[in-house]
Design a protein around this nucleic acid. Structure first.
Lengths: 151, 151
DNA sequence: TAATATCAGACTAAGTTAGTAGGAATCGGT
DNA sequence: ACCGATTCCTACTAACTTAGTCTGATATTA
């Protein structure tokens, strides 16, 4: 079910970052707090957040009263930053993966399409920042989008 | 490797349909012909093409001198038609899947983003027809796209 | 030093993907 | 009527990925 579907890791990671963006910037939030607030399995979230720490998006403080906070302001963190820190670059088809390339390139006519899709997806994710997502009500967005996509 | 990557099935299925679109519309092409011409494992392609037959995109003729041909003209078959026949509808995140929905909807702020991405991807795939892909040289497309995306 | 947290790595169970194998049904030509 | 070519159908498998869990080490504060 669900072609081109984003993995749970990314959904969870984004939720965590969004949650942190809504907290006092000086406050440290523990894994348990984030996990319960966002409804994400605690141990799983722990690993995800580690990747975000290594990726430099989140700062951590160890020990008692430790926890996590954003490494920079929410409007300087894009959706794409989170996605890339967790799963690496987007590659809609293997032929766009710089490591592999297209085996039958001269005759292939699809690369242009994959490229266009990838560019559009990347554009949205790059343009959207975590700050954009803080307070927007969801019901309106969803109704509007699905109606306009149906039209 | 490769977030949001399209499965091989779809790549192979598209190649087959594109190949058929380049043949005489009355000619029946066998699996072996398509497979060797497009460099796709034969038995695997067999199953994929079956799905396209069931989806009504390809007509088949059994028996000796049998084979496959497009069920309708190439400009009436979109990329999306092939994709959907092989893998069902696109759902960028589970919360967009009508069966599941979003568990934490009132507080969720991401649905709008997923929706926008999905709409754009779907738009490209719906707009592009198999006929568009027949003769376009690939090198030009690729060079142009990657340059403009880098800019 | 005790409690509380992050950090690190191995492990697992279930599902998906990419294919293979073997054969039954069907058709054209002789 | 038969033979060869081909589609059609079902079951199977090996490798990989995903979504977690478990155990424990390390660092910090009180």
């Amino acid at each position: 079910m669900g072609l081109m579907q984003v993995p749970r890791r990314i959904d969870y990671g984004l939720r965590a970052v969004i949650y942190l963006s809504g907290q006092d910037p000086e406050k440290c939030c523990s894994i348990s707090e984030i996990a319960t607030q966002q409804g994400v399995p605690r141990k799983f979230l722990e690993k995800i957040i580690q990747d975000l720490v290594r990726g430099g998006l989140i700062k951590s403080k160890r020990g008692s009263c430790g926890g996590y906070m954003l490494a920079r302001s929410a409007d300087a963190i894009s959706f794409y930053d989170v996605i890339e820190a967790l799963e690496g670059p987007i590659a809609v088809n293997t032929c766009l993966d710089p490591h592999m390339g297209c085996d039958q390139l001269p005759r292939c006519t699809m690369v242009g399409v994959w490229n266009e899709v990838q560019r559009k997806v990347t554009e949205v994710f790059t343009r959207t920042t975590i700050a954009d997502l803080r307070q927007t009500p969801c019901k309106d967005l969803r109704g509007a989008s699905s109606l306009s996509s149906a039209a």
